[in-house]
Design a protein around this nucleic acid. Structure first.
Lengths: 362, 362
DNA sequence: CTGTTAGCGCTTTCAT
DNA sequence: ATGAAAGCGCTAACAG
């Protein structure tokens, strides 16, 4: 239950910008040219540092432009150059996941870092409409970043159709050679399993979401390789219900009360781990003694849980920056761009047993 | 401590889009006109539903366009119409706050909702560079949303300078009549104080961040009015160190060990409340018995804390949507736009004592 | 070293 | 009911 405020919800005011409505019409390059007594070309060259003008003219023109308060008209420039300066970014979650990508810390960090990196290099980044959304992209764009691509991602297909460069975060399973940024999830899983094994785990399980992303498959591969090496019987559980704590909880209630209960579990997302955490508590299992928990993707929630959850930091900030950098490179000259693997970090915390001496909790 | 992966960090692949490099050059309206045997004007009119063509021609032209796979060139349209279709959004945090706005759930929700609402209506939303950032905005925009405006917000000044409409979230204290979206924070504070008083609070304090935002001032006003009405001595504490849990913790350690320790505290942001929460626990104070805590702005962290924190949901999603709607209206016709107050919701949880019967925890 | 000119792809008067 | 033509503000050949 809740109560709404009883007060007025609306009232009226005058927009502030109305007051200075005598907006002097934009200063154009033509105006600058006239004022400086040169041609349009010269102004363009001076403003864009095209080195064919003597420093003197360049300076003079720039000064005039500054004094007139000239601001370049980006749209006109875009039209003339055939480049909009806009990058699109889409994150498509599995159908089954309620809520949106902003509920997942990894995506928020990545998105924010990507936007900042783009701006820093003079590009603008626009979030793409959720897949399946009514209309398509409302602006011209020069390239796209597709996070965790799924078979029929709208932005991916649109970019491909228009021949525009794409960088994916995580591999495009339908086209694995496509330019991408990724982590070595398989290695991360094996590292975490080693850690838990050292602390006594004998039956580690893997809890994943639906396996339609490359990172989930990599985790499964890494887990299977590890189990094979150790001659252990793998137990892979797929949580139904998307990337949520609830999905993790339901799955965990299930396998934690079944026969051959695992004594450790690695999850492919922090929200799943949090669900396992909750299930373990509700079953009266002690972490890490009765059950060790480790997960892919670090988050504030993983840090705040009691005990805090051991997690692999995927470095979404570096990932976002790198994706932007790669995409810009691909746009500017398709040559010499190569996919990139972002290093991960393991944060050992209370949800797993004590690890080897060099890996201490942060 | 942590360990980096030892593996290869990079390897090279061929960008996928290179393979289809024989990109058929965009289909333009001219092509459509030729194919349909009509003029450019007619195509334009048909495609934009300008009602001067008989339904027959309109259909025919549209069919041809569709068959040719025509996609409008947004940039060209923008140049001709003098409107870019782009909205800017900036969030400026207090100088003292480390990290970025994406660490604050309110902003993330607002931003995501705003972006979605813009897209839904055919506009694109671009995040503005952090204030004080090197270069200015890399695209032409038609209007701006400025969240929690501060005295010298770069985007605010830029928009004003170019005579572009602005909607602020929270009032612009230097120009209170400016179009905005806001909550009735003063009423929310009083409601929370009532709640805590009913549960026995006799010395409620107010913990705020630096008071340079309208919402902080509103909280202070509401608090003072409430105290005056009840003939209570107000105790307002300003946390140093920005909008962080650490800042809340430090401030709370201080006033919780001083003379006349408050038995309840209202904070102006969830991270501050979480800091108070931590301080109370470290001092062995029981919540809600020894200390009641309530805060502005609900969050996952407030819900997950033990005990969970009573919080005012500011409805950032509605706020973001409304801001976009208002801004578009202001861009399209400056008339009849009015500021808007978004209703809030109180979520009563374990950090405060039992409230009146109709306000039950969710 | 600098200017002239023709677009970029669309919208929009103004004719017919 | 439809078309011709002049831009929108900038870039980029191509001259000189």
């Amino acid at each position: 239950m809740f109560r709404f405020q009883e007060k007025r919800f609306c009232y009226s005011v005058q927009p502030a910008y109305n007051r200075s409505k005598m907006t002097r019409s934009r200063v154009s390059m033509k105006d600058v040219a006239a004022a400086a007594g040169v041609s349009l070309t010269t102004v363009s060259d001076a403003l864009n540092d095209r080195g064919r003008l003597p420093e003197a003219t360049r300076r003079r023109v720039r000064d005039v432009a500054e004094q007139l308060g000239f601001q370049p008209h980006r749209t006109a420039r875009s039209l003339a150059k055939g480049r909009s300066g806009i990058l699109m970014l889409s994150v498509s979650l599995p159908e089954s996941t309620p809520g949106s990508a902003v509920d997942i810390e990894f995506f928020v960090q990545l998105m924010s870092a990507a936007s900042g990196a783009a701006l820093h290099r003079g590009w603008a980044l626009v979030l793409a409409p959720a897949t399946g959304s009514e209309r398509s992209v409302p602006v011209d764009f020069d390239g796209a970043i597709v996070v965790d691509p799924r078979p029929h991602d709208a932005l991916l297909r649109l970019a491909d159709a228009e021949g525009k460069p794409v960088v994916t975060v995580g591999r495009d399973l339908e086209n694995p050679d496509r330019l991408h940024v990724d982590n070595d999830h398989s290695a991360a899983v094996r590292e975490a399993l080693d850690l838990m094994a050292k602390a006594g785990a004998e039956r580690p399980a893997l809890l994943t979401s639906e396996a339609d992303s490359s990172y989930v498959q990599d985790c499964i591969d890494g887990y299977n390789v590890w189990c094979t090496t150790r001659a252990m019987t793998p137990q892979v559980v797929t949580a139904a219900g998307g990337l949520t704590q609830g999905a993790g909880y339901e799955a965990a209630r299930d396998f934690l009360t079944g026969p051959k209960r695992p004594d450790a579990v690695f999850t492919t997302l922090d929200s799943l781990a949090l669900g396992v955490h909750l299930a373990a508590q509700s079953l009266g299992l002690d972490m890490p003694h009765d059950l060790q928990v480790a997960t892919l993707s670090d988050s504030e929630a993983a840090r705040q849980a009691r005990p805090p959850v051991t997690a692999v930091d995927l470095n979404p900030v570096a990932t976002g920056k790198e994706a932007v950098q790669l995409l810009i490179k691909a746009i500017e000259d398709a040559a010499d761009t190569e996919s990139f693997l972002v290093p991960t970090r393991m944060h050992v915390r209370g949800s797993t047993g004590t690890a080897s001496p060099e890996a201490v909790s942060d």
